[in-house]
């Protein structure tokens, strides 16, 4: 991977929620991207939102009360 910045993903129960979360995050200037859910996290065929792990608290605050998520996981940097 090109970036050395530690990354994390937020998982949602619905792709509709993931898309809304991406929209909120982008409007607030968080670098992020919707990616297929990594197989080791869930066998769900949907998407999750990848973001810089250092933004975790700020992003959670931005999404709280607007979007429900199921979990947040750090991605290993390998």
């Amino acid at each position: 991977m090109k970036s050395q910045t530690p990354q994390a993903v937020i998982l949602f129960s619905s792709t509709a929620h993931a898309l809304m979360a991406e929209k909120i995050a982008k409007t607030q200037g968080f670098p992020c991207k919707l990616i297929p859910v990594p197989r080791h996290l869930s066998s769900d065929c949907g998407v999750c939102l990848r973001f810089n792990a250092e933004d975790r608290d700020a992003l959670e605050a931005a999404l709280r009360n607007r979007i429900d998520w199921t979990e947040i996981c750090l991605l290993s940097s390998s």
């Binding site: 792709t15 509709a16 898309l19 919707l34 990616i35 297929p36 065929c45 949907g46 998407v47």
Partner: peptide, 14 residues
Amino acid sequence: PGRSGHRLSIEAGR
């Protein structure tokens, strides 16, 4: 829409 995770699927979801 939103099913597959590639950019065209995500754009359809948007």
